[in-house]
Amino acid sequence: MSTRSVGLAGICVMYAAGLLAGVLAPAGYADQDREHPDAPPSRAHWLGTDELGRDRWSRLLHGTRVSLLLAPAAAVVATALAAAAGLTAAVSGKWTGEAMALAFDVLLSLPLLFLLLALRASLPLNVSAWASLAITFALLALLGWPSAARVARAGALAALESTFALQARAAGIGKLRLLAVHLLPHLRPVVAAQFWLLVPAFILGEANLGILGLGVVEPLPSWGSLLGELQNLDSLRAQPWRLAPAAALLIAVCCFHLAGKTPAEEA
C-alpha cells in the first residue's frame, strides 16, 4: 500500500466521521450538561466534558465536519485563483508578467493575520455561526492564493521553454489555446500539489484565528476553537484527553501531506 493511499484512506475516514457527526455524536455540539462540567472521560462522555458541560467527543466530531468541509472548499477557490493568475502572468508579455509577479510578492508580504482580523471585524454582526464560518474560509481563500500563484507561474514559465510549447507556438496557436490545451494539463500535478498544501494551511489558519478567539464563533466548534484549550498546559498534563483536537489536526495534516505526494515522489 503506497503512502499516498494511506493518506487518502485517512482523509476518507476523517471525512466520514465529520459527515456522520450528527449520527455518531452522542450529543449536540451546543448541549450543555451544566451539572457535569469538566468531567473526565466516561462511557457517557468518551472525551469527557468541557467547562460548560459540553461533550468533547461530540464537539470534536462536529468540529471535524466544519474544518474538513470548508478548508478544502477554500483550497479549491484559492488554487483556481492561483492557477489562473500564475498562468496568465507566465503567458503575458515580459513586463506584464514581471508586474504580476511583483504583485504576488506584495500580496505575500502583507501581514495576512492582521488583514484577516481587520476584514473579520468589518463583517456584518448578525450572521449565523455557519455563515460567519463560511466567510472566514472565503477570506482565507481570497488571501491565501499568491504563494501558489508564484509556483504556478514558475511552472508555466518552465513549461513554455519546453519543446512541445515551442512547437505549439511555432504552429501559430493562440495564447488562450496554449494555456488551456497545452500548459494546464502539463501543470496539473503542480497545481494539485498546491491544493494539497493549501488544505492544511487553511485548517491551521482557521485554528490560529480560533486560538485568538476570532475564528468560528460559539457555540459552533471547529478544530481551531477546540485547540484554544491547548494554551493551558497544566490542564493538559492533568487531562491529556484535551489533546484530541490537536491529534486530529496532526493526523489530518499528515494525511493531506501524504495524499499530495506525486507518483514520482513516492518512487
Partner: peptide
C-alpha cells in the same frame, strides 16, 4: 446564548478584537 435560547431569543455571539 443558551439561556436566552430557552426564551426563544436567538443570540449571535461575535468576538471582536
Amino acid at each position: 446564548e443558551q439561556d436566552l435560547g430557552r426564551m426563544g431569543i436567538k443570540v449571535n455571539i461575535v468576538p471582536l478584537e
